[in-house]
Write a protein that binds this DNA or RNA. Structure first.
Length: 440
DNA sequence: AGCACA
């Protein structure tokens, strides 16, 4: 009652303070940038950024009042305004004499975030989507979800407070990108605070909680028929009911894996009707649709744990998808439907026989991928399916010395191993996303 | 573009 709230909110002249109030900052502004801004005028002893409803205000506190005065005076007469990331920043004395309650950068919070998902459809957000979103900032150790009066909430555990902090700064107040959600879901906004927890206790892998550090954790019985999204448990084993659609994750992807390569590998076991590849958790995954479950089972048994390329590269991990018919709208380099309209016909334009080594001139008739790879023999062993890697040595004499058709070593392909873990991380860290959430 | 925190 008797607080400062009875004071007028704005005064024409602020009495000097060693704390300065900054506004019109870019949303992404960091404490480091605030320190940089103030450093020419004195010693910045404390900062606070992302303040205010739009998170575009901040405070900086100098060790000495004169330093604050110097900064205000300088910009009062400067032709160049104070700027952060090219944006003009407005300065004035704060109406307080010190920054209160600011945790000094490192000890901001803990390694566990309390995430509240807001929105009408919030509780339809799967733990896998949350995992995907937060994995953009570092390894997510554990996630638990629960419903309280506050709504649908999750605890997300990172290895350290810094990672948690970067995730919080980037995601707090944002919407989960709509393309990560089922189409019919409305916007789901993330509200993030620090949790007091440091290590979550996860007893089971389930649709409500996950421990990504412990592949041997038992799976809760309730998770077996959970209606979550992909139930790609860490253990993966025998959880999912069999399906005609396989989910392939590719590990140790040193070399390009194209749609053509995948199609060729999986076609060895039967006709591949549809295929789609996408990035998930920084790796490549693909969904491969066969006409029937039996073919998928055979392919899964034969290919599980095997490598597309010799040398342990591009190791396949397979599970059954919950899908039975993929919805593929366009044929492009990430997704194709090769489903024939008229049976007994050749597959359409998509040439599954074409794959890297053969295209670039494997020795005629030796280990270029033979056309019969496209037959429907479900028992074709894996070995001949393997693409030879080459190590740039494909032109060696043992292959019969091919004068004008050296195989292109796959290493020369321009697959970017060092790309960011997730493409949408760039959307978060740049301004291609509106403050209220949706990316565009 | 106008003052935080619990």
């Amino acid at each position: 009652m008797s607080s400062v709230s009875s004071q007028p909110q704005f005064r024409l002249t602020q009495p000097p303070s060693k704390v300065l109030h900054l506004r019109n900052l870019p949303w992404e502004c960091t404490e480091e940038e605030l320190v940089e801004l103030g450093k020419p005028f004195g010693k910045v002893v404390n900062t606070k950024c992302n303040v205010g409803p739009n998170r575009n205000q901040a405070f900086i506190e100098f060790s000495d009042l004169n330093q604050a005065i110097a900064m205000i005076s300088y910009y009062a007469s400067s032709s160049e305004p104070a700027q952060v990331r090219g944006k003009t920043v407005y300065l004035q004395y704060s109406n307080r004499q010190e920054i209160v309650n600011n945790k000094t950068t490192a000890d901001v919070g803990g390694n566990v975030l309390l995430v509240t998902i807001e929105g009408a459809d919030a509780r339809l957000v799967s733990i896998d989507v949350l995992h995907l979103v937060f994995s953009a900032f570092g390894f997510v150790h554990k996630i638990t979800t629960f419903e309280k009066t506050a709504g649908f909430q999750a605890l997300v555990q990172f290895s350290d407070a810094e990672t948690a902090s970067s995730a919080k700064n980037a995601l707090d107040g944002r919407n989960i990108p709509s393309y990560l959600l089922p189409e019919h879901l409305g916007p789901c906004t993330l509200r993030i605070t620090y949790s007091a927890h440091t290590d979550l206790s996860v007893k089971f892998q389930s649709h409500r909680s996950r421990d990504y550090t412990n592949a041997n954790l038992p799976v809760a019985p309730s998770a077996i028929d959970a209606n979550g999204m992909f139930s790609v448990g860490l253990d993966g084993k025998k959880l999912e009911p069999e399906s005609n659609v396989l989910l392939a994750s590719i590990e140790n992807m040193q070399y390009a894996v194209t749609l053509d390569v995948l199609h060729m590998v999986f076609s060895s076991f039967g006709p591949v009707q549809k295929i789609a590849m996408f990035d998930k958790n920084g790796g490549l995954q693909a969904l491969i649709q066969y006409p029937d479950v039996q073919t998928a089972v055979v392919a899964k048994e034969a290919l599980e744990g095997h490598c597309i390329y010799d040398g342990g590269f591009c190791k396949l991990h397979l599970s059954y998808s919950r899908h039975s018919d993929l919805s593929i709208k366009v044929n492009n380099d990430r997704s194709r439907t090769t489903q024939f309209q008229h049976c007994n016909d050749e597959p359409p334009a998509f040439n599954s026989g074409q794959q890297p080594v053969a295209t670039h001139g494997g020795p005629p008739g030796s280990h270029s991928m033979p056309a019969q790879m496209n037959n429907n023999n479900p028992y074709l062993p894996l070995e001949p399916c393997r693409l030879k890697m080459g190590h740039g040595m494909m032109q060696d004499a043992s292959h019969g010395g091919l004068p004008h058709a050296p195989a292109m070593p796959l290493q020369t392909w321009s697959y970017a191993i060092a790309r960011p873990p997730l493409s949408y991380i760039n959307l978060f860290s740049h301004s291609r996303i509106s403050r209220s959430g949706e990316c565009y």
